[in-house]
Amino acid sequence: MTQRCGFVAIVGRPNVGKSTLMNRILGQKISITSRRPQTTRHQVMGIKTEDDNQIIYVDTPGMHIMSKDRNKAINRFMNQAASQALRDVDCVVFIIDRTRWMPEDQVVLDKLTHVKAPVILAVNKVDWLEDKASLLPWLEQVGAKRDFAAILPLSAKHGTNVPELEAEVAKHLPESIHYYPDDQVTDRTQRFLVAELVREKVMRQLGDELPYQMTVEIEEFRETDRVTHISALILVERQGQKKILIGENGERIKSIGREARLDMERALGGKVMLNLWVKVKRGWSDDERALKSLGYHLD
């Protein structure tokens, strides 16, 4: 049979379920998730190989409108990373949230104006719809906004219609050799993935108290026969944020470390010894040089 291989960008505004969809397709956690917008900050590739098809999904940061509180170097980086992912892909999956059309959805649609690749519209979280009868007229309404290759209602969380989406994506794969080994599932290193797991736990536990001026840097990643030793530095911008992260008697940082370590052990398939530290690095999120040193660079 003929081998096929192609790149598929998953795009949408923040918090519509892009990372959840990619994790569902791959059957394992590659991209971190939380209920906070802009949890994803980088392009993350998820590779799925089945028989003669290899699909390379590119999870992207949510495209957002630059506003007074979102006008930092890190916001510009996330928008650029999402836009860059649209170049030279074979298919685009554009995700929206149920029957809500927000100004940022229009921003994404406008970005797709010059994309020649077929665009599939995925209407996510339909399991949350109270009025299911509203879905069909909405699909007709939103379908008039562009000539979509297909429109699919789905639930990334529960897997509803996700196989149908994969089948639709597969129709647009070009004939090609596979770019990655059949057993590879991401282009990201283990260091990157464990840093993201720590950041996920911070976002989930402190999403309301701690703004987005937080990132994670891995200082040590050392594997021995029985255990992987990991030291992670959590960077914040203000002393008050450091106090929140550590918590009373260090309870918050212990909880974050415990949850992150359990996820790391599942991901790495072995025992992990995790040490977390918190450091104040003022202004890092609006300093392009600092961002590059922390791994925020376009591929």
Rank of each mutant, 00 (worst) to 15 (best):
T2A: 08
T2R: 13
T2H: 09
A9R: 07
R13K: 15
V16G: 09
V16L: 12
G17V: 05
M22W: 04
M22N: 04
M22A: 05
N23V: 06
I25V: 03
S31R: 02
S31Q: 03
R36G: 05
P37V: 03
T39H: 09
T40I: 12
Q43Y: 07
V44C: 02
M45L: 10
G46P: 13
I47C: 03
K48H: 07
D51S: 15
Y57A: 04
V58N: 04
V58C: 12
D59R: 04
T60C: 02
P61L: 05
M63P: 00
I65A: 10
M66H: 10
D69L: 05
K72Q: 12
N75Y: 11
Q80Y: 06
Q80K: 15
Q80H: 13
A81N: 01
A82E: 06
A82I: 09
S83H: 15
Q84I: 13
R87T: 10
V92D: 00
F94I: 05
F94S: 04
F94W: 15
R98F: 11
T99F: 00
R100K: 04
E104C: 10
E104T: 03
D105G: 00
V107E: 12
L109V: 07
L109R: 13
D110Y: 06
D110E: 14
K111M: 09
K116A: 09
L121D: 11
N124A: 03
L139M: 07
Q141S: 11
Q141C: 14
V142L: 04
V142D: 14
K145E: 10
K145R: 15
R146A: 06
D147T: 13
A149C: 11
A149R: 10
A149L: 01
A149N: 08
I151H: 00
L152S: 05
A156Y: 07
T160L: 15
N161H: 09
V162W: 04
E166R: 12
E168I: 12
V169R: 06
H172A: 06
Y179I: 04
Q184A: 12
V185D: 08
V185P: 00
D187H: 05
R199M: 01
K201Q: 15
Q205T: 10
D208E: 10
Y212T: 02
E217G: 00
I218T: 11
I218Q: 00
E219V: 14
E219G: 01
E219K: 14
E219I: 09
E219A: 13
E223T: 06
H229C: 15
L233M: 10
V236N: 00
K242C: 01
K243L: 13
I244S: 08
I246N: 01
I246Q: 08
E248G: 13
R252A: 08
K254E: 09
A260V: 03
G269Q: 00
V272N: 07
M273C: 11
M273W: 14
W277H: 11
W277E: 03
V278T: 01
V278E: 05
K279D: 01
W284M: 09
W284H: 02
A290R: 05
L291Q: 00
K292F: 03
G295V: 12
Y296C: 06
